[in-house]
């Protein structure tokens, strides 16, 4: 086995298998069908968000506004339904808003040259602040009784919740997009070397906008699923560590932060590791606070590993690339 076959993806895969095997040996209640389904279900929203994040990161960006968009778009949508708006009208309005905020992200990154980290940090803050202060009266908004989201949340096929199918379907769609479509290949080119991509005639900047819009739409879908399974949306989720979990899943699966590397497979592996880890920690009765500590330490390890595997060079590092 040579060194190159020992990359991060394989390390993580092996770690996942090791954890899964040892958990099934040592933890009763791990290896049974209901628990496995709950693992997949618990990871599906995270995984969906990670798909969006992956598309942006592969294109050498990052989107810190995803969780804010996820929570606030759905909260606004449900608020409008509760206020008696027409469902389609409300949905159209929200989708328009989501696309607009994604386009704003993309525009500022692509055309104003602002680093994506700051753009999306600011828009995330703004989206939360605006919706919370102007559009909804309380922190949580409930799904109205009999709404299609409620039905969707209760829907089961072979006893498996619908989230899982949507995660699988979106993963497949993202896979097709990244591998087999022209615009999907552009993501890699632009992520690998934006200047070269631009020189060979790829519309780098419109494609950048497209990626942020896609990430925003994916966030909205993840928000709908969250609302469907919990029957309400809690806007305080933006203060939680969900966003960092999304980055954790993406980075730990082996998608380099400098762009151009990785794919849906990496997201799936990252999701599997985090899903199993969270499940194991919960079964082992580790407190939520300690879980946060463990997760963030793993994220730090992943970033250090990423830094060691994809080192930055003093001579070629971009100025202001923070």
């Amino acid at each position: 086995m040579n060194a190159s076959s020992f990359n991060q993806e394989r390390i993580v895969l092996i770690a996942t298998i090791l954890i899964a095997v040892s958990a099934s040996v040592f933890l009763s209640g791990f290896l049974n069908v209901p628990n496995l389904i709950s693992i997949v279900r618990s990871i599906s929203v995270l995984g969906i968000l990670a798909l969006g994040m992956a598309i942006v990161i592969i294109g050498r960006g990052i989107d810190l506004s995803m969780v804010a968009i996820m929570a606030m778009s759905v909260a606004w949508y449900l608020q409008m339904i509760n206020d008696g708006y027409n469902d389609y009208l409300a949905l159209m309005l929200v989708i328009t808003g989501v696309i607009a905020i994604g386009a704003l992200n993309g525009f500022l990154v692509a055309y104003a040259d602002v680093p994506p980290i700051f753009v999306t940090l600011a828009t995330g803050l703004f989206v939360f602040g605006y919706v919370r202060s102007q559009l909804i009266p309380s922190d949580a908004v409930a799904v109205p009784h009999g709404h299609w989201l409620e039905l969707m949340g209760q829907f089961r096929l072979f006893n498996i919740p619908v989230d899982v199918f949507i995660f699988i379907a979106l993963s497949f769609a993202a896979f097709i997009f990244l591998r087999f479509t022209k615009w999907g290949r552009y993501v890699y080119f632009a992520g690998d070397n934006p200047a070269a991509a631009r020189n060979i005639g790829i519309p780098v900047r419109p494609m950048q906008v497209l990626r942020y819009v896609l990430a925003a739409l994916i966030s909205f879908i993840a928000g709908l699923l969250t609302a469907a399974s919990l029957l309400s949306i809690q806007t305080r989720v933006i203060n939680s560590n969900l966003l960092y979990d999304v980055i954790l899943v993406t980075v730990i699966g082996g998608i380099g932060l400098s762009g151009g590397k990785g794919g849906v497979r990496n997201v799936l592996i990252g999701s599997a590791l985090i899903g199993i880890l969270l499940n194991v920690m919960t079964i082992a009765d580790i407190s939520l606070l300690s879980q946060n500590l463990i997760k963030s330490t793993i994220l730090l390890a992943a970033i250090i590993l990423d830094g060691v595997l994809n080192p930055r060079d003093e001579q070629t590092a971009q100025q202001g690339d923070i």
Binding site: L108, F118, L121, L125, F126, V127, F128, G129
Partner: peptide
């Protein structure tokens, strides 16, 4: 109310960063 601060901060940050870069 809640959220106003974040809204203002978000706008402030975005505008300041963009002005700085431009």
């Amino acid at each position: 109310g809640t959220g106003t601060n974040q809204m203002v901060l978000g706008v402030l940050l975005a505008v300041a960063v963009t002005i700085d870069i431009r």
